[in-house]
Design a protein around this nucleic acid. Structure first.
Length: 448
RNA sequence: UGCCUGGUAGCUCAGUGGCAGAGCAGGUGACUGUUAAUCACUUGGUCGCUGGUUCGAUCCCAGCCCGGGCAGCCA
């Protein structure tokens, strides 16, 4: 920071803040994103992590040394640039930088140029270089939106009386007994990476009332789709004295808050990504609610009308094409509730009006994005939960602590989990979750 | 795991049973308003690997390796 110590030196700023310095000379620290040359005119584009700005250097307007330094400069060389901020209608961001001085921090050698050019590349090539790909304008914008989604999600709970209680990542056994878990050697004993913190936060919810957890989750399923990662981030609220209606209200307000925060703070990034902003502006509570039965009727009609290839069999869980079609019928997330208990997890409370149904809800994001939230009211009866554990042939010993929650002061309670990457994919309008996380872990990729 | 699909220059791809191609990137040069700048010239190849058929295989066949898409599972 020696440059800030010099009284006459131009102020250090960022590209995002350039508008505050119009007409002034400033110092930017960043990288050369691209360089266009036109004879005695050079157009270096700089990026600094907050945005990009086009610099202009006339041969007659700068020293010979500065001109020569810029002229041959290679993509992604790191630089400190001094220049005067000028508003210009031709510039995409509204401003340009008339270059005055350039200091090259590290020059990328010509014989080993930066591999990711501003041209088309394939998925595998880019994922193999994810450590560099994150520098690109679009990827950086997605990561900023992701950060805002995570911030706004935590903010919603923090400002509504929730206490964050993070469950362990190393666990002794399966939470639900369904998903495949990653085994870990724990001092000679077998342990697993968590696939959900739900059972643990049911415990802290009965201690603190309203709680949430926020952390990584692991699923060892060999899923190979645009919606799946083996390591993903999930935010899970759990609320004591809450029923299914209360949970759906929580879910819609939570999602609306996140979308509104992203629109308020990261609209420029959404535009870089190419998102249709109007579709996000329509996201406001309340969300439509559909009973499973009503959703099935829609699917049957859709099949008759030729929108779906397979007929839907009543009693099944929805398949991916079913979810896609359902969610595409609404302009905001749709909440499908009361699925048949037989296709849902053992800990879900039966509907008091008809125990064939579970008091659960899936939130399907619009535009065909499908499930982003799954949640339920939990079984609060000791006897029923014990029976369910037996029916599902789960090891009773491992669930004794969980049954304790029904032995000592059991109350109705409910919670849900939202997959961060699926939310990011929807809000950014991406076609694959691998671009929503800095370093995706998928079936075929553990690198870099 | 099942079905579909791909692997040719640094990248994106075309192509043929008989000399290995284009655009871009890299290099050299031109250009005072470019927006993935343009123009001229130019460097660059284990055609995924192994075996088979053939006078001859990048091309046809078999096996293997590595990706991608969809489904299932789920968030």
């Amino acid at each position: 920071m020696s440059e800030t110590a010099l009284p006459s030196a131009p102020p250090v700023t960022t590209i995002a803040e350039l508008g505050k310095h119009e007409g002034q000379s400033v110092l930017l620290r960043g990288w050369l994103y691209n360089l266009r040359e036109s004879g005695k005119l050079l157009f270096p584009i700089f990026r600094d992590g907050t945005g990009t700005i086009q610099g202009v250097a006339h041969k007659a307007g700068v020293s010979a040394e500065v001109f020569e330094t810029l002229k041959g400069l290679t993509q992604e060389s790191s630089v400190k640039v001094t220049g005067k901020v000028r508003a210009d209608k031709r510039a995409p961001g509204g401003y340009e930088l008339d270059v005055e001085q350039v200091e090259v921090v590290q020059r990328v050698p010509e014989e080993d140029p930066y591999p990711i050019t501003p041209k088309d590349h394939g998925v595998d090539f880019l994922m193999e270089r994810r450590h560099l790909w994150v520098r690109s304008t679009r990827q950086a914008a997605i990561l900023r939106v992701r950060a805002e989604i995570m911030r706004a999600a935590a903010e919603y709970f923090d400002t509504n009386g929730f206490t964050r209680t993070d469950p362990p990542i190393l666990t002794p056994a399966a939470c639900e007994g369904t998903s495949t878990l990653f085994p870990v050697d724990y001092f000679g004993e077998e342990a697993f990476l968590t696939q959900s913190g739900q059972l643990y936060i049911e415990s802290t919810a009965l201690a603190l009332g309203k709680v949430y957890s926020f952390g990584p989750t692991f699923r060892a399923e060999k899923s190979k789709t645009r919606r799946h990662l083996t390591e993903f981030w999930m935010i899970e609220p759990e609320v004591a004295f809450c029923d299914l209606d209360g949970l759906m209200e929580l879910a819609e307000n939570f999602i609306a808050h996140i979308v509104q925060s992203v629109l308020a703070k990261r609209k420029a990034d959404l535009l870089v990504i190419g998102r249709d902003i109007a579709k996000l502006e329509a996201i406001a509570a309340p969300f439509p609610r559909l009973r499973y039965d009503a959703a099935v009727e829609m699917l049957n009609q859709a099949f008759k009308d030729g929108h779906l290839e397979q007929p839907f069999e009543y009693g099944n869980d929805f398949g991916s094409p079913d979810e896609t079609w359902l969610s595409s019928q609404f302009d905001r997330p749709v909440m499908v509730h009361r699925y048949p208990a037989a296709v849902k997890a053992f800990y879900m409370q039966p509907d008091p009006e008809n125990p064939q149904f579970a008091m659960c809800v899936d939130v399907l994001a619009p535009e065909g994005y499908g499930e982003i939230i799954g949640g339920s009211q939990r079984v609060d009866s000791y006897d029923l939960l014990k029976n369910r554990i037996e029916e599902h042939k789960l090891p009773m010993d491992a669930f004794q602590w969980y049954l304790d929650l029904r032995r000592y002061g059991s109350v109705p309670h409910a919670g849900f989990g939202m997959g961060i990457e699926r939310a990011v994919a929807w809000i950014c309008g991406l076609d694959h979750v691998r671009e929503t996380i800095p370093f995706a872990r998928t079936l075929n990729r553990m690198f870099p």
